[in-house]
């Protein structure tokens, strides 16, 4: 048998007339309404919030302190402890990005940089935040631990151009990460 027969409930005549069931339903929604207005909605004590219902009054009350470790916010670029730009512009994040938010123009490493062995560094690194879907695949694909998803979730723009974050902005937002990537120093 390729199908499963679902057992349908038997309805009495009263159920079929629907009026009683309708009134029951209306009673349920009315109970919710009254409890909301009284500020006694179920589950409210879990949120230490004011006001109607179990909603958090967003700009006034925020969830920030309770964001989990694995929260996926805006992607950023990070520097190592030694101040080295970790990104070597291998373009794997650009390749994996399902929304095509990342655009990298590869280039030679800055001649004044402290790691000439790395040879390659992005000349331009842009993430279009209007395209980004915060999936975290860039972070997963990165072989250099250079791109991380921050906890920044509030990205407000007044202009489409603002949505494109350049390399400087991304490094500023990402800051420095602990843990040495020994790949490009003399020990290798």
């Amino acid at each position: 048998m390729s199908y499963v027969k679902i057992k349908r409930p038997k309805f009495s005549l009263l159920d079929k007339v629907y009026v009683v069931e309708l009134v029951k339903g209306l009673a349920i929604t009315m109970r919710h309404l009254v409890l909301s207005l009284l500020g006694k909605s179920r589950g409210k004590e879990d949120f230490s919030t004011k006001g109607v219902g179990v909603c958090m009054q967003f700009p006034d009350e925020r969830w920030d302190s309770r964001l989990p470790e694995y929260y996926r916010g805006a992607p950023t670029l990070v520097r190592g402890e030694d101040g080295r730009e970790r990104c070597v512009s291998c373009q794997l994040c650009e390749f994996i990005c399902p929304a095509r938010a990342i655009t990298i123009t590869p280039g030679e490493v800055d001649p004044t940089s402290n790691c000439q062995k790395q040879e390659k560094a992005p000349a331009k690194f842009e993430i279009d935040m209007l395209r980004c879907i915060y999936c975290g695949m860039c972070q997963e694909a990165c072989p250099e631990q250079a791109i991380f998803l921050s906890k920044e979730y509030l990205i407000t723009l007044t202009d489409r151009k603002q949505a494109i974050r350049d390399k400087e902005t991304l490094y500023r937002l990402g800051g420095t990460r602990k843990g040495l990537v020994n790949k490009w120093n003399q020990y290798k």
Binding site: V88, S89, L92, Q118, E119, K120, E144
Partner: peptide, 11 residues
């Protein structure tokens, strides 16, 4: 082998 595929053009 240096395993520098991320910066290698042949990758």
């Amino acid at each position: 082998h240096p395993l520098d595929c991320p910066i290698c053009d042949q990758a």
